[in-house]
Amino acid sequence: MSRTNSKSEIELFVINKVKEMRIKANLSQAELAIKLDLSVGFLGHIESPKKPAKYNLNHINKLAKIFNCSPQAFLPEKAV
């Protein structure tokens, strides 16, 4: 797999899970970006399959606090 602008399966899983929870919580990208102390543009890049930006462990920990869940909620049950 070319790593130039692509994301791995696990990265895409996490991104899609966060996006799903964001939409379910009726939060816009801008609102979530503010809560995460990120720029709106960066959050847009994370959700874009064409950009290399992704969440890191600190983001996942903050997301767990925002959504009041375990960081494990953003990971698959089994390896992908």
Rank of each mutant, 00 (worst) to 15 (best):
M1I: 15
M1P: 14
S2R: 10
R3G: 11
R3T: 15
R3P: 03
R3L: 15
T4R: 15
T4C: 13
T4H: 14
N5Q: 05
N5W: 02
S6G: 14
S6I: 07
K7A: 07
K7Q: 10
S8M: 04
S8K: 00
I10M: 06
I10Y: 09
I10L: 14
E11H: 11
E11I: 11
L12C: 11
F13M: 08
V14H: 07
V14T: 13
I15N: 03
I15T: 12
N16H: 13
N16R: 13
K17E: 14
K17D: 03
K17I: 04
V18E: 01
K19I: 09
K19C: 11
K19L: 13
K19Q: 12
K19F: 15
K19S: 12
K19N: 11
E20D: 10
E20S: 09
E20P: 00
M21D: 02
M21F: 03
R22V: 01
R22A: 06
R22C: 05
R22D: 02
R22N: 03
I23A: 06
I23N: 06
I23T: 14
I23C: 06
I23G: 04
K24F: 02
K24W: 00
K24M: 01
K24T: 06
K24S: 11
A25R: 07
A25W: 01
A25T: 03
N26A: 12
N26V: 09
N26G: 09
L27D: 01
L27C: 03
S28L: 04
S28C: 08
S28M: 07
S28Q: 08
Q29L: 05
Q29S: 01
Q29A: 05
Q29G: 00
A30P: 00
A30E: 14
E31Y: 11
E31R: 14
L32T: 07
L32D: 05
L32K: 08
A33I: 05
A33L: 07
I34V: 13
I34R: 12
K35N: 09
K35V: 09
L36N: 05
L36M: 14
D37M: 02
D37E: 12
D37C: 01
D37K: 07
D37R: 04
L38N: 03
L38R: 10
L38Y: 04
S39W: 02
S39H: 09
S39C: 04
S39F: 02
G41R: 02
G41E: 03
F42L: 08
F42Q: 09
F42V: 02
F42Y: 15
L43M: 07
L43E: 03
L43P: 00
G44S: 10
G44T: 00
G44V: 00
H45C: 12
H45Y: 09
H45V: 00
H45G: 12
H45W: 07
I46D: 10
I46A: 14
I46P: 06
E47R: 01
E47A: 06
E47Y: 10
E47H: 09
E47P: 03
E47V: 08
S48R: 07
S48V: 12
S48L: 12
P49T: 06
P49C: 06
P49W: 04
K50M: 10
K51N: 13
K51C: 12
P52S: 14
A53K: 05
A53L: 01
A53W: 00
K54T: 11
